[in-house]
Simulated assay, not measured.
Amino acid sequence: MTAALLLQYVVVALAVLLSAWVVLKKLAPNATRRLRIALALTLLRAGRPTWVRALGRRVAPSPAATGTCGSCDSCGPPAS
């Protein structure tokens, strides 16, 4: 296998993974959030190198809204 063919396979694999991630985020946002949390918790364990912990903080999703508002933008009066 030549280096050019290997590079082509790597680029195609990355494109497929990126496409699958975008589709998963669009169709299953809760599952995507759970996957990101699980990955971040694994990367943020004690004893990991600093760069791995930094990657884990970057992968972690932003905190969800707490309280009665679920941040669904429907807190206003009902539409007539």
Rank of each mutant, 00 (worst) to 15 (best):
residue 1 M to C: 09
residue 1 M to A: 13
residue 2 T to H: 11
residue 3 A to P: 08
residue 4 A to K: 13
residue 4 A to Q: 14
residue 5 L to I: 11
residue 5 L to T: 11
residue 5 L to Y: 09
residue 6 L to K: 09
residue 6 L to E: 08
residue 8 Q to W: 10
residue 9 Y to E: 14
residue 9 Y to F: 11
residue 9 Y to T: 09
residue 11 V to Q: 14
residue 11 V to M: 12
residue 11 V to P: 03
residue 12 V to D: 05
residue 12 V to G: 05
residue 13 A to Y: 04
residue 14 L to E: 12
residue 14 L to Y: 08
residue 15 A to I: 11
residue 15 A to R: 07
residue 16 V to M: 08
residue 16 V to L: 15
residue 17 L to F: 12
residue 17 L to G: 09
residue 19 S to H: 01
residue 19 S to E: 01
residue 20 A to F: 14
residue 20 A to V: 14
residue 20 A to Q: 12
residue 20 A to P: 06
residue 20 A to T: 11
residue 21 W to K: 01
residue 21 W to P: 00
residue 21 W to I: 07
residue 21 W to R: 01
residue 22 V to T: 10
residue 22 V to N: 03
residue 22 V to W: 07
residue 24 L to G: 07
residue 25 K to M: 10
residue 26 K to C: 02
residue 26 K to T: 01
residue 26 K to N: 01
residue 26 K to E: 01
residue 27 L to V: 06
residue 27 L to K: 14
residue 28 A to E: 07
residue 28 A to Q: 13
residue 28 A to V: 07
residue 28 A to T: 10
residue 28 A to I: 06
residue 28 A to D: 11
residue 29 P to H: 00
residue 31 A to N: 02
residue 31 A to P: 03
residue 31 A to F: 02
residue 32 T to W: 06
residue 32 T to P: 03
residue 33 R to S: 10
residue 34 R to L: 15
residue 34 R to Y: 08
residue 34 R to S: 13
residue 35 L to S: 08
residue 35 L to F: 09
residue 36 R to I: 03
residue 37 I to R: 14
residue 37 I to L: 15
residue 37 I to E: 14
residue 37 I to C: 13
residue 37 I to M: 13
residue 38 A to W: 03
residue 38 A to D: 05
residue 39 L to G: 04
residue 39 L to S: 03
residue 41 L to W: 09
residue 42 T to E: 00
residue 42 T to V: 13
residue 42 T to N: 00
residue 43 L to H: 01
residue 44 L to M: 12
residue 45 R to P: 05
residue 46 A to G: 11
residue 46 A to I: 03
residue 47 G to V: 06
residue 47 G to E: 08
residue 47 G to R: 05
residue 48 R to W: 03
residue 49 P to W: 00
residue 49 P to M: 01
residue 50 T to M: 03
residue 50 T to P: 02
residue 50 T to I: 03
residue 51 W to V: 12
residue 51 W to D: 09
residue 51 W to P: 06
residue 52 V to Q: 00
residue 53 R to H: 02
residue 53 R to M: 04
residue 53 R to E: 04
residue 54 A to P: 03
residue 54 A to E: 12
residue 54 A to V: 12
residue 56 G to H: 04
residue 57 R to S: 06
residue 57 R to M: 08
residue 58 R to A: 09
residue 59 V to K: 00
residue 59 V to C: 00
residue 60 A to P: 04
residue 60 A to T: 05
residue 61 P to F: 05
residue 61 P to G: 07
residue 61 P to A: 09
residue 62 S to K: 13
residue 63 P to Q: 10
residue 63 P to G: 08
residue 64 A to E: 05
residue 64 A to W: 03
residue 64 A to F: 04
residue 65 A to L: 11
residue 65 A to K: 13
residue 65 A to C: 15
residue 65 A to D: 05
residue 65 A to Q: 12
residue 66 T to R: 15
residue 66 T to Q: 12
residue 66 T to A: 10
residue 66 T to W: 11
residue 67 G to C: 08
residue 69 C to M: 04
residue 69 C to A: 03
residue 70 G to I: 08
residue 72 C to N: 02
residue 72 C to K: 05
residue 72 C to E: 04
residue 73 D to I: 00
residue 74 S to G: 01
residue 74 S to E: 12
residue 75 C to D: 02
residue 75 C to I: 04
residue 76 G to L: 10
residue 77 P to R: 13
residue 79 A to P: 00
residue 79 A to Y: 02
residue 80 S to Y: 07
residue 80 S to R: 15
residue 80 S to P: 15
